[in-house]
C-alpha cells in the first residue's frame, strides 16, 4: 500500500518540465518513501522496549507529517503550465483543494503522533493515497 502511494506521489512530477518545484516535489516523495520504510522496520530494532519503539515511531510520524506538509506546499505552488492544458478557474480551485487536503492530513498525522495513536496511521495514509490518486487523474499532464 505504501509503495503504491509513493509511486503515485512521485507521479506528481512532470518530467518534461523540470523545474525547482517539481524537483523538490520528487525529493520530498523519496524522503517520504524512506521514512515509511524505516517506520516499518522499527519492529525489528533490537534491545528497545515497546515504549522506546513507540518513541521511535513518534519521531518517524512527526517527520512524515513534516514531509507531507512540504509536499503539499510544492503541490500548491506548482506552475499551472505543469498541470495540463485548458485549465478552467474551477479546475485551479479544485487543484488547490487537493493541496489543502494534503496539508490537513499532514496535520492529522502530526497530532496522532503527539498522542501515540499509531493504529490510525494506515488509514490516514490511505486517505492521502486516495487524494493523490484523484489529483493525478485529473491534473497530471501526460508526457
Amino acid at each position: 500500500m505504501l509503495m503504491t502511494l509513493l509511486f503515485l506521489l512521485s507521479g506528481c512530477v512532470n518530467k518534461e518540465h523540470d523545474n525547482s518545484r517539481a524537483v523538490e516535489h520528487m525529493i520530498q516523495s523519496q524522503k517520504l518513501r524512506l521514512l515509511m520504510r524505516e517506520l516499518d522496520m522499527v519492529v525489528y530494532e533490537r534491545q528497545k522496549s515497546e515504549l522506546d519503539r513507540d518513541k521511535m515511531r513518534k519521531r518517524y510520524m512527526l517527520s512524515l507529517g513534516e514531509t507531507l506538509k512540504k509536499l503539499s506546499a510544492d503541490v500548491e505552488s506548482m506552475p499551472e503550465s505543469d498541470l495540463g492544458l485548458k485549465l478552467r478557474q474551477e479546475d485551479v480551485l479544485e487543484y488547490k483543494k487537493y493541496a489543502k487536503r494534503l496539508t490537513q492530513k499532514a496535520d492529522e498525522i502530526y497530532n496522532l503522533a503527539q498522542k501515540y495513536e499509531f493504529e490510525e496511521l494506515n488509514q490516514k495514509l490511505e486517505d492521502v493515497k486516495v487524494s493523490c490518486n484523484a489529483c493525478h487523474k485529473q491534473f497530471r499532464k501526460e508526457p
Binding site: Y44, E45, R46, Q47, K48, S49, L51, D52
Partner: peptide, 14 residues
C-alpha cells in the same frame, strides 16, 4: 524496571 540509560541506543541488526 527497563533498559538502562547507559545502554547503546542502536543495536546491530544481528
Amino acid at each position: 524496571q527497563t533498559n538502562s540509560s547507559f545502554n547503546s541506543i542502536v543495536a546491530l541488526d544481528t
